[in-house]
Design a protein around this nucleic acid. Sequence first.
DNA 1: CTGTTAGCGCTTTCAC
DNA 2: GTGAAAGCGCTAACAG
Lengths: 334, 334
Amino acid sequence: MATIYDVSVLAGVSLATVSRVMNNNTKVSEKTKQKVLSAMDQLGYRPNTIAQSLASSRSNSVGVLVSQLDGPFYGPMMTEIETALRAGNKHVIIAAGHSDESQERDGVDFLISRGCDALILDVEAVDDEYLIKLHQGNTPIVLINRYIDEISERCVYLDNELGGYLATKHVLQHGHKQLAYISGPMFKLDSKDRLLGHKRALTEFNLAFEQELFYEGNYKEQGGSQAMDALLKVNKPFTAVVCANDQMASGAIAVCLEKGMSIPEELSFVGYDNIPFPQYISPKLTTVNNPIHEMGKMAALWVLKHVYNDPKPIVENTFSPNLIVRDSATKPIS
Amino acid sequence: MATIYDVSVLAGVSLATVSRVMNNNTKVSEKTKQKVLSAMDQLGYRPNTIAQSLASSRSNSVGVLVSQLDGPFYGPMMTEIETALRAGNKHVIIAAGHSDESQERDGVDFLISRGCDALILDVEAVDDEYLIKLHQGNTPIVLINRYIDEISERCVYLDNELGGYLATKHVLQHGHKQLAYISGPMFKLDSKDRLLGHKRALTEFNLAFEQELFYEGNYKEQGGSQAMDALLKVNKPFTAVVCANDQMASGAIAVCLEKGMSIPEELSFVGYDNIPFPQYISPKLTTVNNPIHEMGKMAALWVLKHVYNDPKPIVENTFSPNLIVRDSATKPIS
DNA sequence: CTGTTAGCGCTTTCAC
DNA sequence: GTGAAAGCGCTAACAG
């Protein structure tokens, strides 16, 4: 591999000059510039980014830590982050936190020790305090899907309370009065917020929240199925099920279909997230749109703007959910 | 940030000794080792991996280039790769190729210039020749989902022809005689192979391949829907649809359900890949298992073993598909 | 077992 | 506008 030294020799200039034309931030005469460029070309020169990083103490890489790499939720987010960052010629280094506190901390350490210029985090197990402290360190961070007052300008998030409210209000407006609720894991902030919104809607319609018809799921299809099984055994009728995400809604609906129930006639469903798949099942799932890919993009743009000083990006950090009405929720029977 | 120098001063030893305890590949007396360790601890020392890379010309990072980051297919693969590599303390740098030749090449260049120690590639647009040449370069590569004879030991792949055969044979054994086939994009090798297997099964049952009942899809839900619409308009009856992947099968089934057809009674379906979601739709999809996550893991282990000389991993590189029988295919209506 | 020393390839003052 | 030279933080011979 040719080095900057080889180029400088071939071009008959100094190392510094070659470096200058690479970074073209200093003035170099057009003539020498061409000499250097053609020398680079002849040698098939490619800068060693590791050496650049060491010398400039910038790695041009940003670390992304998400709970999982798979699933309908994180995939699109990663896609947007990678696209935006690569367009800015930055590298994406990934790590998974698996919703586990020590793994999340490990991931962060891992990424920092790799010299990432910034971190984009979608973490849920570590507490606010940890993140606030992290924020005070040398590596800038931006949080996706989380809101912490003290570092609000670093948060890109969705108003989950509003989403929960919209979903529930939708079935309430159809006349349902007995609702079951399948939540996400309650240690997650978004689970809590969605539930809060659910309760607000209930209150608005003068309905009480029924603890017996509440089931704490795990945001996965299987969790939805389990929840549905449990709910069906409760000795309390309900005509609609509000699910804290689409995956659980799908699992729950599958159980009902299996039992020969007709959906939505016998039981209405609303999901949350608007992941692609449930559009293709029958009935098509009514849900709340979660612009997760937009949020990923915004996090990346934030980094480009504030860490790499790219003046272009316009960054916004709060997103609002909206209802997507399809076929899984209708009027209650009778 | 404390450097190795600070540690050496505090511990009262030389730089080299500190370096030795970090890499613990050379003998260091227990006593000095402890001194160094405690000095590191006191300083909260973290090695600068960039500097390590430059000095050792190993970046401890492996580049992963996939078509897309999202989707039910690549997510699980990425997860396994990240998990396996991180367990070996290696970093994963990702890039997306979007099934586009120039983007795939860019991605490779990008990853190489970042100093990756190895590349794991799931590419489909670049040709074999390019990959063979790449293989001859300095950065070791391993290919997922692709087989090239000249570099077969670098390929981790699935026998797609066999999978195609199994899927089709399954419906044929149920007595179907008129099959429609929705393929993936024909420029992709796996599409071709699956189709080949399909044709082999047909031949085995003395049936002709009907060009009119063939539709080239795009491996996406929507493509499946379009395909189904088109197929339904063809003036030729069929009782089963073999789909080259689950996503298209789901899209196709959705169209039928929408039209009020009962599946599988009126029309049988088989998919391919065994992605998680279609287990939760009704009817549950009969499909061919594609151990994509295993393949991701194997690619990672290959790198650990051959690039980083970890003696542990046992690597196998060819995988066989197997049929997963669920509810979407049954006997034809006589 | 431990210290000395020469780089890894590039950026960045500081002169000229 | 261009060159010389001092590192960035660490590894890896080479001595001892």
